[in-house]
């Protein structure tokens, strides 16, 4: 399914997706690194943290893409089923 045309609101949200992805990976990495130092399990928890952060980032991006796709479809059909 092709996405778009996007509303002005969607454009603003799209510009934040990259940063949200980066923050998710950074949080996962930081949390994993801290846990590794705390439990002396280097490097396993850092690796798990990075992968978890990456998964969370992808989840956020895919969820937003799906929401925008749904909103666009609703607009095309002349209906509004809500945002999420």
């Amino acid at each position: 399914m092709a996405l778009g045309p996007f509303s002005a609101k969607d454009h603003v949200v799209i510009t934040t997706l990259g940063l949200e992805f980066a923050v998710a990976v950074a949080l996962g990495t930081g949390g994993g690194y801290w846990a590794d130092r705390h439990y002396a399990t280097t490097p396993w928890l850092t690796i798990i943290g990075v992968l978890s952060g990456f998964a969370l980032g992808m989840y956020i991006v895919v969820k937003e893409a799906r929401r925008m796709g749904r909103t666009t479809t609703s607009d095309k059909n002349g209906k509004d089923h809500g945002s999420i």
Binding site: T16, E20, V23
Partner: peptide, 17 residues
């Protein structure tokens, strides 16, 4: 938990941006 963390990330992103 993913949804709760993504809400926290949104708030963090507002500040960082």
């Amino acid at each position: 938990p993913l949804e709760v963390i993504s809400l926290l990330i949104r708030v963090c992103v507002l500040a960082i941006r």
